[in-house]
Design a binder for these strands. Structure first.
Length: 597
RNA sequence: GGUCCGGUAGCUCAGCUGGAUAGAGCAACAGCCUUCUAAGCUGUGGGUCUUGAGUUCGAAUCUCAACCGGAUCACCA
């Protein structure tokens, strides 16, 4: 039972005794006291004026007096306007800190044997181009959400659905055959995903000039598109692929292997991973079967051209295509098939799709379709919908070459971290290996924190030119504070100071120290909120508050020079636990925190 | 046009189950390295919380309307 709950129940008793009213927990507005006022927790007393039949000040004083007399936790109170500020006794904070100190799983919940299983799908790349900034946000959010779900007591399966089939893949394959036969990642020195992406671009280039040529021969744009020989070849390739043509499939497999090797490298650098990977080439057939079954059951209907549709007008939506007239599948078909396979493979309690908000409609439809098909989890699927990452000049557009590549971005961040560190002389005492590790941790920490601190639902702006600050509300600032705390603890250790398991409850502690303990005591709740609201940003902003507060504290005191031994121990223990909160919190964001930097 | 999401300082963002004088960082300016790491700290300036109504003791927060921006409504994925 935390301090908040204790006080709440005390207030309930007070209201009952004073005014004979019973009030539910939710009716009691107990918030953190604002900095300008004295106290820790503030009760809004306006709601009780009717019952007390007295003015705000008087009512507040009455409640405060009662609490003071009946609760040892309350050390003082004051009423300002309609707000009763309560002061919590010093020893309560110390005992809270003692609890945190001994809590081996501070901020996390143990995963029980019968814990629910949450499957989280994220990343979901296409195999025809490398990962870009949008994927970075997706990957970071997905990975972090998985960590947060684990920390709140869920079993988690991280999954990735690779979009490895369709006309777009054939474009890259065709371009390679025509203009790149023999080129491989090995002999070109290029990462496989980039190489394949280049051929995709090359196809587009040739396709465009073919269209221009045709249009010069007085064709309309539409006619030109219909008469393009390149596009016809690509479509023919797709047909052959679906028919299992050995040569096409072999080419497809070779190029996919290149791409996957490239992706693996990117994922590894980013620090994300998956427990199970699905491929659309292996799930779309399952989807077709599901749709056929639905058709037989009368859930869907067939048009004259044999295409299959779902009528969703009853749900306030449109008609939705599920199978083309030629029997080939569309996006939705594949997602149905993938969902079926997943639920066959795992006893999933909750399915979370981390997919951009441009697909809100798609998931609304998917949920309804799965429900109609009789999957009882369909209705409850969660679409973790996040906003786009925009550049200062607007959206990223591959045609205009304004796409920010994930590999380039990470490399640049690490390089900037290196330059900054060198300038500050931080790497002087490090071996090259140590320096490389530290610089990577900082560069990636800056990138990850920058992206995760923003509310996922919102579109966000990323300015590559200004890159990312290392000052202020940033990953490096938090990492730096952690490194400094570690340094204090190392020095304390050198001086043979042992931090005890428990601190005496009689030490007088300052207001700032009380604030810090209060913040620490709120951490577990923050993690739970982040889990419920699917928002790593809550944790990021909480950690920043904590670190900012600690830095201010740090400049007021020199811990190791404190002459009062008990106080010194208290401050060391406080610092130690703040470092623990930083490590845990940043860990949930997938951000490493170094011990020195 | 239908549906969904957003609009808070010059910029990037917090705050949103209604509560006190709306907060950080960046940028600008002024200070602080005999102090456990200055990637830090302190101070100054900067706001019609898009607008208008409503709900009430009280609205950035809830409701409605308008305006602006984005997404989506494909036999693309």
């Amino acid at each position: 039972m935390n301090i908040h709950q204790q006080i709440t129940s005390g207030i309930q008793k007070a209201l009952d005794a004073l005014y004979q009213i019973q009030v539910a927990d939710s009716q009691i507005q107990l918030t953190k006291t604002k900095k300008e006022f004295e106290g820790h927790l503030t009760l809004v007393i306006f709601p009780f004026l009717k019952a007390s039949k007295k003015g705000p000040e008087q009512t507040g004083d009455e409640i405060g007096k009662y609490l003071m007399e009946n609760m040892p936790e309350i050390a003082g109170y004051n009423t300002i306007k309609g707000f009763l500020n309560l002061q919590i006794a010093s020893n309560i904070w110390i005992s809270l800190l003692n609890d945190i100190q001994s809590d081996k799983e501070y901020g996390t919940t143990k995963i029980e044997n019968n814990a629910p299983l949450v499957m989280i799908e994220y990343s979901s790349p296409n195999t025809n181009k490398p990962l870009h900034l949008g994927h970075v946000r997706n990957n970071l959010l997905g990975y972090s959400l998985a960590e947060i779900k684990k920390a709140t007591g869920n079993n988690v399966v991280k999954t990735n659905i690779v979009n490895d089939r369709g006309i777009h893949i054939c474009k890259s394959m065709l371009a390679w055959e025509k203009w790149g036969e023999g080129i491989t990642p090995e002999n070109s020195g290029k990462k496989g995903d980039h190489l394949v992406g280049d051929f995709y671009v090359l196809f587009d280039k040739h396709y465009k000039s073919e269209l221009a040529e045709l249009q010069q021969k007085s064709m309309s744009k539409e006619e030109a598109e219909a008469n393009s020989s390149l596009m016809a070849e690509a479509r023919e390739m797709l047909r052959k692929w679906e028919a299992g043509d050995m040569k096409v499939v072999a080419l497809w497999e070779m190029m996919n292997t290149w791409v996957y090797a490239g992706f693996d490298e990117t994922y590894k650098q980013m620090g994300v991973n998956f427990d199970k990977i699905y491929y659309e080439s292996q799930t779309y057939i399952d989807g077709k079967e599901q749709v056929q079954e639905g058709l037989q059951k009368g859930i869907f209907y067939e048009k004259e051209d044999k295409s299959v549709w779902a009528d969703l007008t009853g749900e306030g939506l449109d008609h939705k295509l599920l199978l083309r007239g030629d029997g080939t599948s569309v996006y939705m078909t594949q997602d149905i098939g993938t969902a079926r396979q997943r639920f066959n493979d795992y006893p999933i309690n909750q399915m979370i799709y981390v997919v951009g908000n441009e697909q809100n409609y798609h998931f609304q439809v998917l949920s309804i379709l799965l429900d109609k098909l009789g999957f009882d989890w369909g209705k409850d699927l969660v679409h973790f919908s996040y906003g786009m990452v925009e550049l200062p000049e607007g959206k990223m557009k591959s045609r205009e070459g304004t796409v920010v590549d994930a590999d380039d971005l990470m490399a640049e961040m690490i390089q900037t971290a290196e330059e900054t560190s060198r300038e500050l002389g931080k790497l002087d005492d490090c071996s090259p290996e140590e320096a490389k590790k530290i610089v990577e941790t900082i560069g990636l920490g800056a990138l990850k924190y920058f992206i995760l601190k923003v509310d996922p639902r919102k579109n966000m702006v990323f300015n590559p030119k200004e890159s990312i600050d290392f000052n202020g509300n940033t990953g490096p600032f938090i990492q730096y504070t952690h490194a400094r705390i570690c340094s204090v603890l190392r020095k304390a250790d050198e001086q043979k100071i042992n931090i005890p398991e428990k601190i005496s409850q009689t030490i007088p502690i300052s207001e700032k120290e009380q604030n810090l303990v209060q913040l620490l005591s709120e951490f577990p709740q923050v993690v739970k909120d982040a889990s419920n609201e699917c928002s790593p940003a809550l944790i990021a902003n909480y950690i920043y508050d904590l670190v900012k507060e600690y830095n201010q504290f740090y400049h007021d005191f020199s811990i190791l020079k404190e002459t009062d031994n008990d106080k010194k121990l208290f401050r060391l223990m406080l610092s130690q636990n703040i470092a623990k909160a930083i490590r845990t919190g940043m860990g949930l964001l997938g951000i490493e925190v170094p011990e020195r930097m």
